[in-house]
């Protein structure tokens, strides 16, 4: 039985696996951080947020875009279909967040109870 837990992630409760909701790819053990099973890309924020202001117009280099020395965009992709599961704006070197750590036993029990009813 699969449970959809984010826009792009399912959990296969029987196999205890993270799965891509878009392509069905089995990613890895659900008791681990799903990000461990993704492809990760370090994107310069200027590629998404265009720096409209010439930094020379500012005494401290403001550009209307996040500063790549302060902040990078980490993109987490499905290794099979490249759907972007999540992004994080992090200072260079800051560990990505373990953002979803479900109580799998409680989740299984909940769905077991629902099936019994």
């Amino acid at each position: 039985m699969k449970v959809r837990v984010t826009e792009y992630l399912d959990i296969d409760l029987d196999k205890e696996l993270w799965c891509c909701h878009s392509c069905g790819k089995e990613l890895g053990a659900v008791r681990e951080n799903y990000k461990h099973f993704t492809l990760v890309y370090d994107r310069d924020p200027h590629e998404i947020h265009k720096p409209y202001i010439n930094p020379e117009s500012s005494p401290v280099g403001h550009s209307c875009s996040p500063d790549p020395e302060w902040c990078r965009i980490l993109e987490f992709y499905c290794p099979n279909c490249a759907t972007m599961f999540e992004v994080e704006y992090l200072p260079p070197g800051h560990p990505p967040t373990h953002d979803i750590e479900l109580d799998i036993d409680a989740l299984k029990a909940r769905h077991q109870n629902q099936d019994n009813h």
Binding site: V40, E69, E75, P79, A82, P91
Partner: peptide, 25 residues
């Protein structure tokens, strides 16, 4: 994306070596 993205643990080996400038933090 598939070409540029790196497997998580490979990516982390390089990423965690980085740090913002001392002035910033």
């Amino acid at each position: 994306r598939k070409k540029q993205g790196k497997p998580y643990h490979d990516f982390m080996k390089e990423w965690l070596e980085r740090k913002p400038k001392e002035e910033i933090i």
